[in-house]
Write a protein that binds this DNA or RNA. Structure first.
Lengths: 225, 225
DNA sequence: TTTTGTGAACTAGTTCACAGCT
DNA sequence: AGCTGTGAACTAGTTCACAAAA
Protein backbone atom coordinates (compact mmCIF):
# COMPACT_ATOMS: atom_id res chain seq x y z
CA UNK A 1 0.00 0.00 0.00
CA UNK A 2 0.93 3.59 -0.27
CA UNK A 3 -1.12 5.22 2.42
CA UNK A 4 0.41 8.53 3.48
CA UNK A 5 1.73 6.79 6.57
CA UNK A 6 1.52 3.40 8.11
CA UNK A 7 0.55 2.39 11.62
CA UNK A 8 3.64 3.30 13.66
CA UNK A 9 4.14 7.05 13.97
CA UNK A 10 2.34 9.36 11.58
CA UNK A 11 5.04 12.01 11.78
CA UNK A 12 5.24 13.25 8.24
CA UNK A 13 3.93 15.61 5.58
CA UNK A 14 0.22 15.53 6.58
CA UNK A 15 0.45 18.79 4.64
CA UNK A 16 -2.82 20.40 5.46
CA UNK A 17 -5.54 18.31 6.96
CA UNK A 18 -8.81 20.13 6.47
CA UNK A 19 -10.46 21.59 9.51
CA UNK A 20 -13.61 19.71 8.57
CA UNK A 21 -11.62 16.51 8.93
CA UNK A 22 -10.12 17.37 12.31
CA UNK A 23 -13.54 18.33 13.59
CA UNK A 24 -14.83 14.96 12.50
CA UNK A 25 -11.98 13.15 14.20
CA UNK A 26 -13.09 14.76 17.43
CA UNK A 27 -16.65 13.66 16.77
CA UNK A 28 -15.52 10.10 16.07
CA UNK A 29 -13.66 10.07 19.37
CA UNK A 30 -16.80 11.09 21.19
CA UNK A 31 -18.79 8.37 19.44
CA UNK A 32 -16.20 5.81 20.42
CA UNK A 33 -16.33 6.96 24.03
CA UNK A 34 -20.07 6.38 24.00
CA UNK A 35 -19.64 2.95 22.45
CA UNK A 36 -16.94 1.97 24.92
CA UNK A 37 -19.15 3.07 27.82
CA UNK A 38 -21.84 0.85 26.35
CA UNK A 39 -19.41 -2.06 26.39
CA UNK A 40 -19.04 -2.32 22.62
CA UNK A 41 -15.67 -3.81 21.65
CA UNK A 42 -15.70 -3.59 17.91
CA UNK A 43 -17.51 -1.41 15.40
CA UNK A 44 -17.73 -1.19 11.62
CA UNK A 45 -17.76 2.12 9.77
CA UNK A 46 -21.23 1.09 8.65
CA UNK A 47 -22.72 0.77 12.11
CA UNK A 48 -20.85 3.82 13.39
CA UNK A 49 -22.33 5.79 10.53
CA UNK A 50 -25.84 4.56 11.18
CA UNK A 51 -25.78 5.21 14.90
CA UNK A 52 -24.38 8.71 14.69
CA UNK A 53 -25.71 9.92 11.32
CA UNK A 54 -22.40 9.94 9.55
CA UNK A 55 -21.23 8.60 6.20
CA UNK A 56 -19.41 5.27 6.34
CA UNK A 57 -17.07 6.00 3.43
CA UNK A 58 -16.10 9.29 4.96
CA UNK A 59 -15.28 7.70 8.29
CA UNK A 60 -13.07 5.15 6.55
CA UNK A 61 -11.37 7.80 4.45
CA UNK A 62 -10.72 10.08 7.40
CA UNK A 63 -9.23 7.27 9.43
CA UNK A 64 -7.30 5.64 6.59
CA UNK A 65 -5.50 8.89 6.00
CA UNK A 66 -3.68 8.47 9.30
CA UNK A 67 -3.01 4.76 9.15
CA UNK A 68 -4.63 1.37 8.71
CA UNK A 69 -6.55 1.10 11.93
CA UNK A 70 -9.28 -1.25 10.73
CA UNK A 71 -9.44 -4.99 10.25
CA UNK A 72 -11.16 -6.18 7.07
CA UNK A 73 -14.17 -8.34 7.75
CA UNK A 74 -14.28 -7.12 11.36
CA UNK A 75 -14.23 -3.34 11.58
CA UNK A 76 -12.38 -1.26 14.16
CA UNK A 77 -11.50 -2.22 17.72
CA UNK A 78 -13.10 0.50 19.80
CA UNK A 79 -10.39 0.81 22.43
CA UNK A 80 -7.65 0.61 19.88
CA UNK A 81 -9.14 3.24 17.60
CA UNK A 82 -9.82 5.52 20.56
CA UNK A 83 -6.16 5.33 21.46
CA UNK A 84 -5.12 6.17 17.93
CA UNK A 85 -7.51 9.09 17.70
CA UNK A 86 -6.37 10.48 21.01
CA UNK A 87 -2.81 10.29 19.81
CA UNK A 88 -3.63 11.92 16.45
CA UNK A 89 -5.55 14.71 18.17
CA UNK A 90 -2.69 15.24 20.60
CA UNK A 91 -4.86 14.33 23.58
CA UNK A 92 -2.33 11.84 24.94
CA UNK A 93 -1.02 14.51 27.32
CA UNK A 94 -2.52 17.22 29.48
CA UNK A 95 -3.06 20.47 27.60
CA UNK A 96 -3.26 23.60 29.69
CA UNK A 97 -5.63 26.37 28.70
CA UNK A 98 -5.75 30.02 29.76
CA UNK A 99 -8.86 32.12 29.52
CA UNK A 100 -8.41 35.78 28.76
CA UNK A 101 -11.10 37.86 30.40
CA UNK A 102 -12.68 37.08 33.78
CA UNK A 103 -16.06 38.55 32.91
CA UNK A 104 -19.29 36.58 32.83
CA UNK A 105 -18.29 34.55 29.83
CA UNK A 106 -14.70 33.92 30.89
CA UNK A 107 -15.73 32.74 34.34
CA UNK A 108 -18.44 30.51 32.90
CA UNK A 109 -16.00 28.95 30.46
CA UNK A 110 -13.41 28.46 33.22
CA UNK A 111 -15.82 26.25 35.14
CA UNK A 112 -17.41 24.64 32.10
CA UNK A 113 -17.24 20.90 32.74
CA UNK A 114 -17.01 20.03 29.05
CA UNK A 115 -13.52 21.50 28.91
CA UNK A 116 -12.09 19.42 31.70
CA UNK A 117 -12.84 16.21 29.87
CA UNK A 118 -10.40 14.67 27.44
CA UNK A 119 -7.24 16.05 28.95
CA UNK A 120 -7.77 19.80 28.97
CA UNK A 121 -7.02 21.75 32.12
CA UNK A 122 -8.13 25.31 32.59
CA UNK A 123 -5.03 26.54 34.37
CA UNK A 124 -5.62 30.28 34.61
CA UNK A 125 -7.85 33.26 34.00
CA UNK A 126 -6.42 36.66 33.07
CA UNK A 127 -7.94 40.08 33.51
CA UNK A 128 -6.80 43.66 33.80
CA UNK A 129 -9.15 44.72 36.61
CA UNK A 130 -7.17 44.78 39.83
CA UNK A 131 -10.35 44.01 41.78
CA UNK A 132 -10.50 40.63 40.10
CA UNK A 133 -6.81 39.75 40.15
CA UNK A 134 -6.02 37.40 43.01
CA UNK A 135 -9.57 36.05 43.17
CA UNK A 136 -10.62 32.65 41.87
CA UNK A 137 -13.48 31.37 39.80
CA UNK A 138 -16.12 29.38 41.66
CA UNK A 139 -14.42 26.24 40.41
CA UNK A 140 -11.10 27.48 41.75
CA UNK A 141 -9.31 28.77 38.67
CA UNK A 142 -7.01 31.63 39.76
CA UNK A 143 -7.34 35.06 38.15
CA UNK A 144 -4.04 36.67 37.23
CA UNK A 145 -3.08 40.08 36.01
CA UNK A 146 -2.90 40.10 32.25
CA UNK A 147 0.56 41.66 32.47
CA UNK A 148 1.85 38.45 33.99
CA UNK A 149 0.62 36.39 31.05
CA UNK A 150 4.03 35.70 29.56
CA UNK A 151 5.54 34.67 32.87
CA UNK A 152 2.65 32.44 33.94
CA UNK A 153 2.11 30.97 30.48
CA UNK A 154 5.71 29.78 30.56
CA UNK A 155 5.60 28.65 34.18
CA UNK A 156 2.36 26.68 33.77
CA UNK A 157 3.07 25.44 30.26
CA UNK A 158 -0.09 26.95 28.78
CA UNK A 159 -0.55 26.07 25.14
CA UNK A 160 -4.06 27.29 24.31
CA UNK A 161 -5.70 30.65 24.99
CA UNK A 162 -9.42 31.40 24.94
CA UNK A 163 -10.38 35.00 24.15
CA UNK A 164 -13.37 36.07 26.23
CA UNK A 165 -12.77 39.81 26.49
CA UNK A 166 -14.99 42.55 25.10
CA UNK A 167 -14.66 43.03 21.34
CA UNK A 168 -12.73 46.33 21.48
CA UNK A 169 -9.85 44.80 23.47
CA UNK A 170 -9.76 41.50 21.62
CA UNK A 171 -7.10 42.37 19.05
CA UNK A 172 -4.83 43.82 21.69
CA UNK A 173 -5.24 40.82 23.96
CA UNK A 174 -4.61 38.35 21.18
CA UNK A 175 -1.38 40.19 20.40
CA UNK A 176 -0.28 39.67 24.01
CA UNK A 177 -1.24 36.01 23.76
CA UNK A 178 0.84 35.56 20.62
CA UNK A 179 3.76 37.47 22.16
CA UNK A 180 3.69 35.11 25.13
CA UNK A 181 4.38 32.18 22.82
CA UNK A 182 0.93 30.59 22.75
CA UNK A 183 0.17 29.22 19.31
CA UNK A 184 -3.47 28.11 19.49
CA UNK A 185 -6.36 30.49 20.17
CA UNK A 186 -10.07 29.96 20.55
CA UNK A 187 -11.81 33.28 20.05
CA UNK A 188 -15.27 34.17 21.34
CA UNK A 189 -15.18 37.85 20.52
CA UNK A 190 -17.08 38.97 17.46
CA UNK A 191 -15.18 40.19 14.43
CA UNK A 192 -11.87 39.36 12.83
CA UNK A 193 -8.59 38.95 14.67
CA UNK A 194 -5.15 39.09 13.10
CA UNK A 195 -2.65 36.43 14.05
CA UNK A 196 0.63 35.36 12.44
CA UNK A 197 0.59 32.37 10.09
CA UNK A 198 2.11 30.03 12.62
CA UNK A 199 -0.69 30.62 15.13
CA UNK A 200 -3.94 28.71 14.78
CA UNK A 201 -7.07 30.75 15.44
CA UNK A 202 -10.54 29.29 15.75
CA UNK A 203 -13.45 31.62 16.18
CA UNK A 204 -16.87 31.05 17.64
CA UNK A 205 -18.95 34.00 16.54
CA UNK A 206 -22.22 34.11 18.41
CA UNK A 207 -23.58 37.04 16.44
CA UNK A 208 -22.98 35.27 13.15
CA UNK A 209 -24.61 32.10 14.50
CA UNK A 210 -27.70 33.93 15.69
CA UNK A 211 -28.03 35.97 12.52
CA UNK A 212 -27.76 32.82 10.48
CA UNK A 213 -30.67 31.37 12.45
CA UNK A 214 -32.56 34.61 11.91
CA UNK A 215 -32.04 34.22 8.16
CA UNK A 216 -33.51 30.76 8.31
CA UNK A 217 -36.57 32.03 10.15
CA UNK A 218 -36.99 34.87 7.67
CA UNK A 219 -36.86 32.37 4.81
CA UNK A 220 -39.50 30.15 6.38
CA UNK A 221 -41.88 33.05 6.62
CA UNK A 222 -41.28 33.88 2.98
CA UNK A 223 -41.95 30.26 2.03
CA UNK A 224 -45.44 30.34 3.45
CA UNK A 225 -47.04 30.45 0.03
CA UNK B 1 -31.35 39.85 -16.45
CA UNK B 2 -32.31 36.63 -14.86
CA UNK B 3 -30.99 36.91 -11.36
CA UNK B 4 -32.93 34.63 -9.03
CA UNK B 5 -34.85 37.64 -7.85
CA UNK B 6 -34.79 41.33 -8.46
CA UNK B 7 -34.64 44.19 -6.02
CA UNK B 8 -38.20 44.35 -4.66
CA UNK B 9 -39.01 41.39 -2.44
CA UNK B 10 -36.78 38.34 -2.59
CA UNK B 11 -39.66 36.03 -1.66
CA UNK B 12 -39.10 33.05 -3.89
CA UNK B 13 -37.32 29.77 -4.38
CA UNK B 14 -33.99 30.67 -2.68
CA UNK B 15 -33.99 26.90 -2.44
CA UNK B 16 -31.15 26.25 -0.15
CA UNK B 17 -28.73 29.02 0.55
CA UNK B 18 -25.59 27.48 1.96
CA UNK B 19 -24.82 28.11 5.59
CA UNK B 20 -21.40 29.36 4.53
CA UNK B 21 -23.17 32.05 2.55
CA UNK B 22 -25.50 33.14 5.35
CA UNK B 23 -22.56 33.32 7.72
CA UNK B 24 -20.79 35.58 5.28
CA UNK B 25 -23.84 37.83 4.92
CA UNK B 26 -23.64 38.38 8.65
CA UNK B 27 -19.96 39.19 8.35
CA UNK B 28 -20.62 41.66 5.55
CA UNK B 29 -23.20 43.38 7.69
CA UNK B 30 -20.67 43.80 10.47
CA UNK B 31 -18.13 45.22 8.03
CA UNK B 32 -20.69 47.69 6.74
CA UNK B 33 -21.50 48.78 10.28
CA UNK B 34 -17.83 49.52 10.81
CA UNK B 35 -17.63 51.45 7.56
CA UNK B 36 -20.75 53.44 8.33
CA UNK B 37 -19.38 54.33 11.76
CA UNK B 38 -16.27 55.54 9.99
CA UNK B 39 -18.44 57.75 7.80
CA UNK B 40 -17.88 55.84 4.57
CA UNK B 41 -20.81 56.25 2.18
CA UNK B 42 -19.90 53.97 -0.65
CA UNK B 43 -17.70 50.90 -0.98
CA UNK B 44 -16.57 48.62 -3.80
CA UNK B 45 -16.36 44.86 -3.41
CA UNK B 46 -12.66 45.33 -4.04
CA UNK B 47 -12.02 47.67 -1.12
CA UNK B 48 -14.36 45.73 1.16
CA UNK B 49 -12.38 42.61 0.35
CA UNK B 50 -9.04 44.26 1.02
CA UNK B 51 -10.05 45.81 4.30
CA UNK B 52 -11.61 42.68 5.76
CA UNK B 53 -9.61 39.89 4.11
CA UNK B 54 -12.40 38.62 1.91
CA UNK B 55 -12.64 37.78 -1.77
CA UNK B 56 -14.19 40.47 -3.96
CA UNK B 57 -15.81 38.07 -6.41
CA UNK B 58 -17.36 36.13 -3.58
CA UNK B 59 -18.82 39.26 -2.03
CA UNK B 60 -20.36 40.21 -5.36
CA UNK B 61 -21.71 36.73 -5.95
CA UNK B 62 -23.21 36.44 -2.49
CA UNK B 63 -24.94 39.80 -2.80
CA UNK B 64 -26.00 39.41 -6.42
CA UNK B 65 -27.86 36.26 -5.49
CA UNK B 66 -30.37 38.32 -3.54
CA UNK B 67 -30.72 41.22 -5.93
CA UNK B 68 -28.80 43.91 -7.78
CA UNK B 69 -27.69 46.08 -4.92
CA UNK B 70 -24.59 47.55 -6.52
CA UNK B 71 -24.04 50.35 -8.99
CA UNK B 72 -21.55 49.71 -11.76
CA UNK B 73 -18.68 52.09 -11.76
CA UNK B 74 -19.49 53.11 -8.18
CA UNK B 75 -19.84 50.11 -5.87
CA UNK B 76 -22.40 49.72 -3.12
CA UNK B 77 -24.02 52.44 -1.05
CA UNK B 78 -23.16 51.47 2.52
CA UNK B 79 -26.43 52.49 4.16
CA UNK B 80 -28.47 51.03 1.36
CA UNK B 81 -26.67 47.69 1.39
CA UNK B 82 -26.88 47.52 5.19
CA UNK B 83 -30.62 47.91 4.93
CA UNK B 84 -30.86 45.17 2.34
CA UNK B 85 -28.71 42.80 4.36
CA UNK B 86 -30.69 43.42 7.51
CA UNK B 87 -33.84 42.63 5.60
CA UNK B 88 -32.37 39.48 4.05
CA UNK B 89 -31.13 38.28 7.44
CA UNK B 90 -34.50 39.00 8.98
CA UNK B 91 -33.05 41.60 11.34
CA UNK B 92 -35.63 44.21 10.43
CA UNK B 93 -37.64 43.25 13.52
CA UNK B 94 -36.88 42.32 17.11
CA UNK B 95 -36.16 38.63 17.56
CA UNK B 96 -36.69 37.22 21.01
CA UNK B 97 -34.37 34.56 22.35
CA UNK B 98 -34.79 32.15 25.26
CA UNK B 99 -31.87 30.51 26.98
CA UNK B 100 -32.39 27.01 28.31
CA UNK B 101 -30.34 26.44 31.44
CA UNK B 102 -29.55 29.09 34.06
CA UNK B 103 -26.18 27.64 35.00
CA UNK B 104 -22.86 29.42 34.59
CA UNK B 105 -22.99 29.36 30.83
CA UNK B 106 -26.68 30.22 30.46
CA UNK B 107 -26.40 33.19 32.80
CA UNK B 108 -23.27 34.42 31.04
CA UNK B 109 -24.95 34.17 27.65
CA UNK B 110 -28.07 35.92 28.93
CA UNK B 111 -26.03 39.00 29.81
CA UNK B 112 -23.64 38.77 26.87
CA UNK B 113 -23.68 42.20 25.26
CA UNK B 114 -22.98 40.84 21.78
CA UNK B 115 -26.43 39.28 21.69
CA UNK B 116 -28.34 42.43 22.39
CA UNK B 117 -26.93 44.13 19.31
CA UNK B 118 -28.61 43.88 15.93
CA UNK B 119 -32.13 43.37 17.15
CA UNK B 120 -31.89 40.32 19.38
CA UNK B 121 -33.50 40.41 22.79
CA UNK B 122 -32.80 37.81 25.44
CA UNK B 123 -36.31 37.54 26.80
CA UNK B 124 -36.09 34.64 29.22
CA UNK B 125 -33.99 32.00 30.94
CA UNK B 126 -35.42 28.58 31.76
CA UNK B 127 -34.30 26.11 34.41
CA UNK B 128 -35.76 23.23 36.37
CA UNK B 129 -34.22 24.11 39.76
CA UNK B 130 -36.91 25.73 41.86
CA UNK B 131 -34.23 27.68 43.74
CA UNK B 132 -33.41 29.54 40.53
CA UNK B 133 -36.93 30.02 39.21
CA UNK B 134 -38.21 33.51 39.96
CA UNK B 135 -34.71 34.97 40.19
CA UNK B 136 -33.13 37.11 37.50
CA UNK B 137 -29.75 37.22 35.82
CA UNK B 138 -27.50 40.11 36.82
CA UNK B 139 -28.62 41.87 33.65
CA UNK B 140 -32.27 41.36 34.62
CA UNK B 141 -33.36 38.44 32.48
CA UNK B 142 -36.05 36.51 34.39
CA UNK B 143 -35.61 32.81 35.12
CA UNK B 144 -38.71 30.72 34.50
CA UNK B 145 -39.61 27.15 35.22
CA UNK B 146 -38.90 25.02 32.21
CA UNK B 147 -42.40 23.59 32.43
CA UNK B 148 -43.78 26.99 31.52
CA UNK B 149 -41.74 27.14 28.36
CA UNK B 150 -44.63 26.63 25.96
CA UNK B 151 -46.81 29.23 27.67
CA UNK B 152 -44.08 31.86 27.94
CA UNK B 153 -42.65 31.21 24.49
CA UNK B 154 -46.08 31.95 23.04
CA UNK B 155 -46.72 34.93 25.31
CA UNK B 156 -43.36 36.57 24.65
CA UNK B 157 -43.09 35.56 21.00
CA UNK B 158 -39.81 33.72 21.42
CA UNK B 159 -38.44 32.44 18.15
CA UNK B 160 -34.93 31.23 19.00
CA UNK B 161 -33.74 28.95 21.82
CA UNK B 162 -30.19 28.58 23.08
CA UNK B 163 -29.34 25.23 24.69
CA UNK B 164 -27.01 25.74 27.65
CA UNK B 165 -27.95 22.77 29.81
CA UNK B 166 -25.66 19.87 30.77
CA UNK B 167 -25.14 17.35 27.99
CA UNK B 168 -27.29 14.57 29.49
CA UNK B 169 -30.45 16.73 29.53
CA UNK B 170 -29.84 18.42 26.20
CA UNK B 171 -31.86 16.06 24.01
CA UNK B 172 -34.81 16.18 26.38
CA UNK B 173 -34.72 19.95 26.60
CA UNK B 174 -34.49 20.40 22.86
CA UNK B 175 -37.56 18.22 22.49
CA UNK B 176 -39.45 20.57 24.81
CA UNK B 177 -38.19 23.52 22.80
CA UNK B 178 -39.43 21.98 19.56
CA UNK B 179 -42.76 21.07 21.16
CA UNK B 180 -43.22 24.68 22.20
CA UNK B 181 -43.14 25.75 18.57
CA UNK B 182 -39.64 27.25 18.44
CA UNK B 183 -37.98 26.50 15.11
CA UNK B 184 -34.43 27.79 15.51
CA UNK B 185 -31.97 26.43 18.06
CA UNK B 186 -28.41 27.35 18.94
CA UNK B 187 -26.85 24.45 20.81
CA UNK B 188 -23.87 24.69 23.15
CA UNK B 189 -24.04 21.20 24.54
CA UNK B 190 -21.56 18.69 23.19
CA UNK B 191 -22.77 15.84 21.02
CA UNK B 192 -25.55 15.39 18.52
CA UNK B 193 -29.14 16.53 18.98
CA UNK B 194 -32.11 15.29 17.00
CA UNK B 195 -34.55 17.83 15.65
CA UNK B 196 -37.28 17.56 13.01
CA UNK B 197 -36.46 18.72 9.47
CA UNK B 198 -38.36 21.96 9.81
CA UNK B 199 -36.27 23.09 12.78
CA UNK B 200 -32.89 24.71 12.20
CA UNK B 201 -30.17 23.61 14.60
CA UNK B 202 -26.78 25.26 14.85
CA UNK B 203 -24.23 23.78 17.20
CA UNK B 204 -21.22 25.32 18.85
CA UNK B 205 -19.17 22.43 20.11
CA UNK B 206 -16.46 23.63 22.42
CA UNK B 207 -14.89 20.21 22.83
CA UNK B 208 -14.56 19.80 19.08
CA UNK B 209 -13.07 23.28 18.77
CA UNK B 210 -10.49 22.67 21.47
CA UNK B 211 -9.58 19.25 20.18
CA UNK B 212 -9.12 20.67 16.73
CA UNK B 213 -6.65 23.18 18.18
CA UNK B 214 -4.94 20.35 19.99
CA UNK B 215 -4.54 18.54 16.68
CA UNK B 216 -2.89 21.59 15.21
CA UNK B 217 -0.44 21.79 18.11
CA UNK B 218 0.34 18.09 17.84
CA UNK B 219 1.07 18.53 14.13
CA UNK B 220 3.45 21.44 14.76
CA UNK B 221 5.46 19.35 17.16
CA UNK B 222 5.65 16.55 14.60
CA UNK B 223 6.83 19.03 11.97
CA UNK B 224 9.87 20.02 14.00
CA UNK B 225 12.22 18.09 11.82
C1' DT C 1 -18.73 -13.45 3.86
C1' DT C 2 -17.81 -9.17 5.84
C1' DT C 3 -15.64 -4.95 5.87
C1' DT C 4 -11.73 -2.13 4.98
C1' DG C 5 -9.03 1.10 2.04
C1' DT C 6 -9.22 3.78 -2.06
C1' DG C 7 -9.51 5.27 -7.09
C1' DA C 8 -13.08 7.30 -9.66
C1' DA C 9 -17.27 9.98 -9.99
C1' DC C 10 -19.75 13.38 -8.25
C1' DT C 11 -21.19 17.65 -5.70
C1' DA C 12 -20.34 21.95 -3.49
C1' DG C 13 -17.81 26.03 -3.03
C1' DT C 14 -14.46 29.49 -4.62
C1' DT C 15 -12.01 32.31 -7.77
C1' DC C 16 -11.08 34.01 -12.35
C1' DA C 17 -11.91 36.88 -16.03
C1' DC C 18 -14.63 39.61 -18.76
C1' DA C 19 -18.98 41.47 -21.01
C1' DG C 20 -21.76 45.13 -20.12
C1' DC C 21 -23.64 48.98 -17.40
C1' DT C 22 -22.94 53.81 -15.40
C1' DA D 1 -12.54 54.56 -16.40
C1' DG D 2 -14.46 51.86 -12.84
C1' DC D 3 -17.00 48.33 -10.96
C1' DT D 4 -20.84 45.05 -10.92
C1' DG D 5 -22.90 40.70 -12.16
C1' DT D 6 -21.95 36.25 -13.87
C1' DG D 7 -20.52 32.19 -16.91
C1' DA D 8 -16.60 29.34 -16.98
C1' DA D 9 -12.64 27.26 -14.73
C1' DC D 10 -10.93 25.61 -10.88
C1' DT D 11 -10.44 23.63 -6.13
C1' DA D 12 -12.14 21.25 -2.19
C1' DG D 13 -15.01 17.96 -0.14
C1' DT D 14 -18.15 13.97 -0.29
C1' DT D 15 -19.99 9.68 -1.81
C1' DC D 16 -19.88 5.64 -4.70
C1' DA D 17 -18.45 1.29 -5.81
C1' DC D 18 -15.29 -2.32 -5.86
C1' DA D 19 -10.81 -4.90 -5.47
C1' DA D 20 -8.30 -6.94 -1.90
C1' DA D 21 -7.73 -8.60 2.87
C1' DA D 22 -9.16 -11.26 6.93
Amino acid sequence: MKTPNKAGKPRQALDQVSELTTNRLSVYLRCLNALEDAGVLTVSSQSLAEQFHLNAAQIRKDLAYFGEFGVRGVGYYVGDLKRHLRQILGLDRKLRVAIMGAGNLGLALADYPGFRQEGFEIAALFDNLSAKVGQRSRGGVPIHDIHDLKKIARRDGISIAVIAVPAPSAQHVVALVVASGIRAVLNFSPGTLEVPDDVKLKSVDLTVSLESLSFFLAQCEGDEK
